[in-house]
Computed example of a mutant assay.
Amino acid sequence: MDLKAVRAFVAIADSGQFQRAAVDLALTQQAVSKRIAALEKDLGVRLLVRTPRGAELTIDGQALLPHARVLLQAEERASAAVRPGSRALRVDVVGRRAATGGLVQEFHRAHPETALDIVTLFDVETAVAAVRDGAVDATFRAVTMPGHRLPDGIAALPVLDEPMHLCVGPDHPFARAPWVTPAQLAGHRIWMPGNVPGTEWHAYYEALAAEFGPVIDTIGPNFGLEALLDTIAGSPTVATFLSDRTPHVWPVGHDLRLVPLRDPAPVYPHSLLWRTGNPHPGLTALREHLTATRPRPPEGELWRPSWAERPGPEV
């Protein structure tokens, strides 16, 4: 159905005259008449009749009018969803069940008036390009990785040093340890089937393995976090890295343990990236919220890869 013709029909129904509708739509009266004629031909019914007082709806026109209004409202909502300056704040969180997804949930609870559109772009190149082009307002990323620099016009704000924990089943040698040092992980198998080469998190764990000696195993299909935890729970040798900030539900009966890592404590450096000059008001609110509520990092010595230099408040 031609929405231009539908708009002309609604304008005539509201004004009661072809001439007044033409003025409201900035069209000629002939153009309005042609649109109505095309709509009536498409539907196979008469919608309007001309009278000395203007135009009146037929019974079919009366039946169509409420649906025509819904069509125009749907068109406006669809346009607003993608129109710069009027659409919801669009934020990339890598994964909805990642710690950064939790940060955005906390922002939403504090600012329910800010409409949000959450997307999950996979790699840093795609995410930064989307921010640069305006398709996404902000993304959470580890801002530097080997061979990667932020392009001009992209700003970064550190928002979370996410502590890594060792996740083990009840029969693992470290299951009853109050904490473990990264050096104690040397030679231990850390299974991470979602650790895909070319991503910033793969670069992070490769650097951790090179520094402390755990064996990062990425072999096997990635069936998701639940399947990973099922395997960890039943293995006396396999472990993985998780954070206590990762929003997930522990499987019942698995008796999984999150063992803190200390001396030093490995932290994953999340930053918020956005394009300088982006005028979306929700973006300012998001930055201010993340700055005011930034979690304190763990006490003691921290570890990050040598390439993960922390930016200043804005870079």
Results as ranks from 00 to 15, higher is better:
residue 225 L to C: 00
residue 88 A to I: 05
residue 222 N to W: 03
residue 221 P to D: 15
residue 27 L to P: 04
residue 102 G to W: 07
residue 104 V to I: 15
residue 208 L to K: 11
residue 238 V to R: 11
residue 164 M to D: 10
residue 135 A to I: 01
residue 307 W to Y: 15
residue 59 I to D: 14
residue 94 V to G: 01
residue 253 G to E: 13
residue 314 E to Y: 02
residue 243 S to E: 05
residue 230 D to K: 07
residue 49 V to F: 12
residue 87 R to M: 04
residue 31 A to S: 13
residue 114 T to L: 06
residue 139 T to K: 10
residue 43 L to P: 01
residue 247 P to H: 13
residue 258 L to S: 07
residue 274 W to K: 04
residue 309 E to R: 08
residue 293 T to S: 12
residue 94 V to Y: 01
residue 306 S to N: 11
residue 90 R to T: 14
residue 98 A to C: 04
residue 63 A to D: 10
residue 91 V to L: 09
residue 117 D to K: 09
residue 104 V to T: 12
residue 55 A to Q: 07
residue 41 K to N: 12
residue 181 T to Y: 05
residue 105 Q to F: 05
residue 24 D to L: 15
residue 17 Q to T: 15
residue 271 S to L: 00
residue 270 H to G: 00
residue 85 G to K: 10
residue 191 W to L: 06
residue 100 T to D: 01
residue 148 H to K: 11
residue 166 L to W: 02
residue 57 L to E: 03
residue 40 E to N: 09
residue 59 I to P: 01
residue 92 D to P: 04
residue 292 A to I: 09
residue 38 A to D: 15
residue 168 V to Q: 03
residue 122 F to P: 01
residue 19 Q to C: 08
residue 56 E to T: 12
residue 119 V to G: 09
residue 210 A to W: 00
residue 17 Q to E: 14
residue 206 E to F: 09
residue 78 A to I: 00
residue 81 A to E: 11
residue 28 T to D: 15
residue 12 I to F: 01
residue 39 L to R: 07
residue 192 M to T: 00
residue 28 T to L: 08
residue 87 R to Q: 09
residue 121 L to Y: 03
residue 269 P to D: 05
residue 276 T to H: 08
residue 22 A to T: 13
residue 104 V to C: 10
residue 216 I to H: 00
residue 128 V to N: 07
residue 68 A to W: 06
residue 128 V to W: 08
residue 266 P to V: 00
residue 50 R to A: 15
residue 145 M to V: 07
residue 139 T to R: 04
residue 271 S to R: 00
residue 232 I to Q: 04
residue 249 V to M: 11
residue 263 D to N: 14
residue 199 T to P: 00
residue 143 V to I: 05
residue 130 A to E: 10
residue 119 V to H: 10
residue 294 R to I: 07
residue 17 Q to S: 15
residue 101 G to A: 08
residue 311 P to T: 06
residue 238 V to G: 08
residue 309 E to Q: 10
residue 179 W to L: 05
residue 71 L to Q: 13
residue 303 W to E: 11
residue 99 A to Y: 01
residue 40 E to V: 06
residue 254 H to R: 13
residue 130 A to F: 08
residue 35 R to M: 07
residue 22 A to V: 14
residue 143 V to H: 14
residue 65 L to T: 00
residue 23 V to F: 11
residue 28 T to Q: 12
residue 131 V to I: 14
residue 274 W to N: 02
residue 246 T to H: 12
residue 251 P to D: 09
residue 115 A to V: 02
residue 308 A to H: 04
residue 153 G to F: 07
residue 255 D to Y: 07
residue 89 L to F: 05
residue 254 H to M: 11
residue 53 R to D: 14
residue 155 A to S: 12
residue 63 A to M: 09
residue 275 R to I: 02
residue 28 T to V: 06
residue 279 P to T: 11
residue 29 Q to T: 13
residue 155 A to Q: 06
residue 113 E to M: 06
residue 129 A to H: 14
residue 1 M to A: 12
residue 245 R to K: 12
residue 212 F to D: 05
residue 28 T to H: 14
residue 173 P to Y: 08
residue 271 S to Q: 13
residue 275 R to Q: 10
residue 59 I to E: 13
residue 130 A to G: 08
residue 275 R to N: 02
residue 63 A to C: 02
residue 98 A to F: 14
residue 181 T to M: 07
residue 145 M to W: 13
residue 299 E to C: 02
residue 258 L to C: 10
residue 235 S to Y: 12
residue 69 R to Q: 13
residue 95 G to Q: 09
residue 91 V to R: 02
residue 14 D to I: 01
residue 173 P to F: 08
residue 175 A to K: 03
